[in-house]
Design a protein around this nucleic acid. Structure first.
Lengths: 244, 244
DNA sequence: GGGCGGCGTTGATCCGTATCAATCGGCCCG
DNA sequence: CGGGCCGATTGATACGGATCAACGCCGCCC
C-alpha cells in the first residue's frame, strides 16, 4: 500500500495508532488499507502498563490484540507447583495475540514499563478474512517467533549456565538496539528483566544467574552499573561465551 | 473449496498427491483450487526415505517443500562442538518447509521410515501469492508449531529428567494415535525415535533416558517390548509423572 | 558358526547447578 | 532517622544428571 495515503490518514485527525505500529514495519498496521486503518484507529486504545501488570492469564480468553509500542512483554507458562518458564519476549513493534484461538496458552505480563496499542480481536479477525496482506504479515511474524523459539530450545536443552547467560545478554543487545549491535565498538543497554525473570527465561535459579553475571564481569566481558545497566566492550567475546 | 471437485481431480487420472495430504486436513493441499491441484500434482514427487536420511542441512538452501505422508521427521540444531537438540518433530500430515526464507535454520532428517510428497518451493510460493486460503493454512500450521515449541520450552527449562521422559511418551502417544489417546483404556504405540534421539529431544543423555524408562517400567507406568514397543495401561498415571 | 558393530542397559563416580542461608544496598514509609 | 521490604550477591552444602566404563542383546556378514 501507498505510504502517502497512510500519512494522510494521520494528518486528517485520526489517532496516532499506526505511526508507531509500522515504525519498523512489523506491526500489523502496515498491511491495512485506508478504510481499515480508519476503522481500527477509531476502535483502538493506547495504554501504558506498569511492570508486573498481567495482560492475559494462562488459559484465559482473549478479546484483545495489541501492538507493543515500547517496553518488553514476557510470555510465561507455569506448572501446577509454581515452576515457571518464560517462553517468549515481545519487543516493539511486535504483535501480541493468537489468531484463531479464543484462549491463550500462556500468560502475558509487562516486564518493564510497557506502552501498548490495543484493539478488539473480532475487528482484526474480520480484517484478516478480507485482507490477505494482513494474514501475510501475521504469517511472517509467526514464522519469526517460531524461529526464535527453536533457537531458544537449543539454548535451554544443551547449553551450560554460563552459555545461557551470555546468550541472553546477546539476545537483549540485539533486540533493544539492533543498529548498535550491527556496528563496531562497545554496546550498552539496560536489562529489561529482573534476575528472577532472567532465571525463568533461562531455566536457571536467580543465584546461578547472579553468579554467572559476576563471573562475566570479573572476566571483563561485561561491565555492570546499578544492576541493570550493561556495557559490552567487545561483542565477539560475549558471543564466544554464548557458543554462538 | 468443494470436496466433490477435488475427488474429480483424483478420479480423472491425476496423481494421488492430495488424497494423502488432506487426510486429516492439515496438509497444504486442502487449500488449493482445482487448477492449482492439477499443476501441483504434475510437479510433485512421492518418495520414501530410510531412517537417518537428511532432507535439508542446517543453513542449507531449500528448494523443496514436502508433506509428510507417513513416518516421523526430526528437526535438529547443532552447536559447533557437536551438542545437538531436536527442536521439532513432524508427523503426518504436517507440512515441511519454511516460506519466505531461502535457507533453513535447522536440519531435517528422517527419524523413521518416512514417506514424503515433495514439490518445488517456487511453485508453492507462487500459489501462496495468489491463494489466500493456502496462506491461511500455513498460518494455522505455523501457529500450531509455535504452540508446540513453547510447550516444549517449559519441559526443557523446568522439568526433571523423569518428567521429561514421561512428557515425551505422552507427546508420542498423542501424535501417533490421536484417537486412542482420547478414549479410555490402555494405549500402545512404537517409539519412532532411538534413545539417542529421545535424549536430543529432551536435553538429556542416553543413559539418563534409559534409566528413567526402566524406572517407569519398574513402577508399572509403562510396559516395554523389544525396546521400542510401549504399552501405557493408564494414561492418567503417565500424565501425573509428566506433571501435565 | 563366530566375530563384529550398533543400540540399549546398568553401575560407579564426578561435577554443575539447586538449595538453603546470610548479608548487602536501595527505597518507601512511618 | 529507623524499620522493613525487595532485589541482588555471596557462601556452604546437597543432589540430580553427566560422564566414564563395562556388559548384554541382536542382526549382519565373513
Amino acid at each position: 500500500m501507498d505510504k502517502k495515503v497512510r500519512e494522510d490518514v494521520h494528518t486528517t485527525g485520526v489517532p496516532t495508532l499506526c505511526q508507531a505500529c509500522d515504525a519498523r514495519h512489523r506491526g500489523v498496521c502496515g498491511a491495512l488499507n485506508t478504510n481499515q486503518l480508519v476503522t481500527l484507529s477509531k476502535h483502538s486504545v493506547r495504554r501504558k502498563l506498569d511492570p508486573g501488570t498481567e495482560l492475559v492469564g494462562e488459559e484465559q480468553d482473549v478479546s484483545q490484540y495489541s501492538n507493543v509500542i515500547g517496553g518488553v512483554v514476557k510470555l510465561t507458562k507455569m506448572l501446577s507447583d509454581g515452576r515457571q518458564q518464560i517462553v517468549g519476549l515481545q519487543f516493539a513493534p511486535d504483535f501480541l495475540g493468537r489468531p484463531f484461538s479464543r484462549s491463550s496458552r500462556f500468560s502475558a505480563e509487562a516486564a518493564t514499563d510497557v506502552e501498548l496499542c490495543s484493539f478488539s480481536k473480532g475487528l482484526i479477525d474480520r480484517m484478516i478474512d478480507e485482507s490477505p496482506d494482513l494474514e501475510h504479515k501475521l504469517l511472517e511474524q509467526t514464522l519469526k517467533e517460531l524461529d526464535e523459539a527453536r533457537d531458544w530450545m537449543l539454548t535451554l536443552g544443551r547449553k551450560t549456565a554460563a552459555e545461557k547467560v551470555a546468550s541472553f545478554l546477546h539476545l537483549i543487545a540485539v533486540n533493544v538496539d539492533p543498529e548498535a549491535s550491527e556496528s563496531e565498538g562497545p554496546i550498552t543497554f539496560d536489562l529489561p528483566l529482573t534476575r528472577a525473570d532472567i532465571a525463568d527465561f533461562l531455566g536457571l535459579t536467580i543465584e546461578t544467574v547472579s553468579r554467572q553475571l559476576t563471573k562475566l564481569r570479573k572476566d571483563g566481558v561485561i561491565h555492570i552499573e546499578n544492576n541493570r545497566h550493561i556495557t559490552v566492550p567487545d561483542i565477539e567475546r560475549l558471543n564466544d561465551r554464548a557458543s554462538l
